[in-house]
């Protein structure tokens, strides 16, 4: 099957080294200590973290570190055909274990002895790369719960089809049977915490594919941090930052932040709770933003408020 068109585009219109759109939201489960929804294109995952709390099973209690538990489930409606999935099948047990180990590596468990942290992840929409999306969602949820971590672990997958390395495989590409490399990465420490691969690859190709997946992880980390970097930049005003109120999108009133770095321009769209980078921003839209200009600082403050800082 042809996975890359002669024009060099993939089945869903992406270029080989392009990621799907990322979207994240935290604080989605009110009763949980921390929670997040993470979307990579059509893959959508919800994660909830409870704890640190008293260990349920006394026999499992550890006197020097916290017990981390993880449960991965797929919603019945997450795939194309609606199937009832038995709980605790081989696949979900394996992924639960993978997520648990990845998270355990970055949580500072030694600070919370004799307690337990529960991570629940559920796939709401499956379109390839659920494992990566789950890890990203779990990271965000743990950060939301205020659990001390060494670093924000991020994950991304990459594959190799039609003699091309592809970043962030979707379901069709995933089920082609080619190699699928999932990498979990600690961006600050520059360390790999998870590496999984289905099927085989020549060694030199593997290196490029893994490099690609690592780059993907860094991109995810940048996305997670994007909000943060923007705010960090703000006080030092060598960067010109213009903020417009933006409500062209009828459904949702949005804020738009236009950051002019010395070299390049960035447009960010903030709809109060999430932040997206806008590409293909037409010049007319920019003008309409300028027209609707409001007091910049006020909006940034409001935005901070929305972020919970």
């Amino acid at each position: 099957m042809e996975f890359i068109s002669p024009e060099g585009l993939r089945l869903d219109g992406r270029r080989p080294l392009e990621m799907r759109q990322l979207r994240a939201q935290i604080g989605v489960v009110s009763k949980a200590d921390g929670s997040a929804v993470f979307e990579m294109g059509n893959t959508k995952v919800i994660a909830a973290v409870y704890g640190p709390r008293e260990v349920e099973n006394r026999a499992q209690q550890m006197n020097d570190q916290a017990l981390v538990r993880c449960e991965y489930t797929m919603a019945n409606f997450s795939t194309g055909d609606r199937v009832r999935k038995p709980k605790g099948d081989r696949r979900s047990t394996e992924i639960s274990m993978v997520i648990r180990q990845t998270m355990e590596a970055c949580i500072m468990t030694n600070l919370m002895p004799r307690s337990q942290i529960d991570i629940f992840v559920q796939v709401l929409q499956a379109d390839g790369g659920t494992r990566s999306a789950c890890i990203n969602a779990a990271t965000l949820a743990l950060a939301d719960a205020g659990i001390p971590m060494r670093d924000l672990v991020t994950s991304c997958s990459a594959g190799y089809l039609n003699t091309t390395s592809l970043l962030d495989l979707n379901y069709v590409e995933d089920s082609a049977g080619g190699p699928d490399v999932t990498v979990g990465f600690l961006p600050k420490l520059d360390k790999v915490t998870l590496l999984q691969m289905d099927s085989k690859l020549p060694l030199d190709t593997f290196e490029t594919v893994m490099q690609l997946a690592t780059e993907g992880c860094k991109a995810v980390a940048n996305y997670i941090r994007e909000v943060r970097t923007l705010l960090a930049l703000l006080p030092y005003s060598n960067i010109n930052m213009v903020i417009y109120s933006y409500s062209a999108n009828a459904r949702n009133s949005c804020l738009c932040i236009h950051v002019i770095y010395p070299a390049k321009h960035h447009l960010y769209l903030v709809d109060r709770y999430c932040l997206r980078t806008l590409s293909n921003f037409s010049i007319d839209e920019v003008h309409s933003l300028r027209a609707a200009r409001t007091e910049p600082l006020e909006i940034v403050e409001a935005w901070r408020y929305g972020l919970g800082f």
Binding site: A143, M149, R150, D151, K188, R225, R228, E301, R304, Y305
Partner: peptide, 20 residues
């Protein structure tokens, strides 16, 4: 909420950090 936020202390907001 924006109004409230405008009035709150700005120095604290500047000192906020995330993991790592």
């Amino acid at each position: 909420l924006e109004n409230l936020q405008c009035l709150s202390s700005k120095s604290a907001a500047n000192a906020s950090v995330t993991v790592a």
